[in-house]
């Protein structure tokens, strides 16, 4: 069997709780408590769970916005959780993150050109300004925006368009792996459908791999090849959505599925 693109083994993230005059560590929050899973190249793994289940922390750990307490994260077989800043730089280019809230995740004082171009300046320092602008225009076309949007600022866009800007920014560095942390939760159902379709289109076009974090079970069912169900820092059940949704084994998965209002 091929090496999976991403392999997480016994990952733990414990946050210390400090209290008292000397701010001594008195307890720990076990945000992620012994999680293991693999993601095959080109596939989409959905990660579902409620607020506080630890699902976003896993995403942040992979991209090193949070340091794990223990465990391994291997990317194409290479351990990346203990790399230093410089060594991790090349993975920052391969792994990108799309955030939930398109209102807070892009800088309101930067134009679209600056937002998308910033990543290009860092990761493609050889491109000159004209080449960068050319590439940004391509990216905007790709995500369904227009080159005339280059000079506009975030407040001139709707929520769905801002999420497209976030996607263009992530794609700018030609990543292999995208962590999508609740990318459609803040959007209208009609816009949600457009963004989900866009994510699936660019996945096909660039052979991307996704970790799709969401609390929306129906969206996860739609987009995922494998689904992980998290509760209180642990994965309680995993499997392909067809079987997991039809025949949930764990009581928590059943509870989650039963809570979804249907019509």
């Amino acid at each position: 069997m091929n090496t999976p693109l991403l392999s997480v083994t016994d990952l733990k993230v414990h946050f210390p709780i400090r209290s008292g005059l000397l701010q001594r560590v008195t307890d720990q929050v076990r945000a992620v408590d012994g999680v293991s899973f693999d993601i095959e190249a080109g596939s989409t793994v959905g990660l579902v769970g409620e607020s506080g289940s630890g699902k976003s922390t896993i995403g942040k750990c992979i991209i090193r916005l949070v340091d794990p307490s223990s465990g391994q994260i291997r990317y194409q077989g290479t351990e990346i959780s203990n790399l230093d800043r410089n060594a991790f730089m090349s993975y920052r280019k391969k792994i990108q993150l799309i955030f939930q809230d398109p209102y807070n995740s892009i800088n309101p004082r930067m134009s679209v050109e600056q937002i998308v171009g910033e990543a290009l300046e860092i990761h493609f320092p050889n491109k000159n300004k004209a080449q960068r602008r050319q590439r940004i225009s391509e990216l905007l076309n790709l995500v369904g925006l227009e080159p005339k949007h280059l000079t506009r600022y975030p407040h001139e866009f709707s929520g769905g368009q801002r999420q497209r800007i976030g996607i263009a920014r992530a794609l700018a560095v030609e990543p292999e792996f995208l962590i999508c942390d609740e990318p459609v939760s803040a959007l209208d159902v009609s816009v949600q459908a457009q963004i989900v379709n866009l994510l699936q289109d660019i996945q096909k076009e660039f052979k991307l791999t996704y970790l799709f974090i969401s609390h929306d079970l129906a969206v996860v069912e739609h987009i995922s090849d494998q689904v992980l169900v998290m509760n209180e820092g642990r994965i309680v059940e995993q499997g392909p959505p067809e079987s997991l949704y039809r025949d949930p084994q764990h009581a928590y998965t059943r509870k989650l599925l039963e809570a979804v209002p249907r019509f």
């Binding site: 159902v189 009609s190 459908a193 699936q200 129906a218 739609h222």
Partner: peptide
């Protein structure tokens, strides 16, 4: 009709979501 159509529903997986 279009608004209801674009919602993914549990247990009714489609190839592609319908947009309005």
């Amino acid at each position: 009709r279009a608004l209801i159509d674009c919602i993914p529903r549990l247990g009714q997986k489609k190839q592609r979501l319908t947009t309005i």
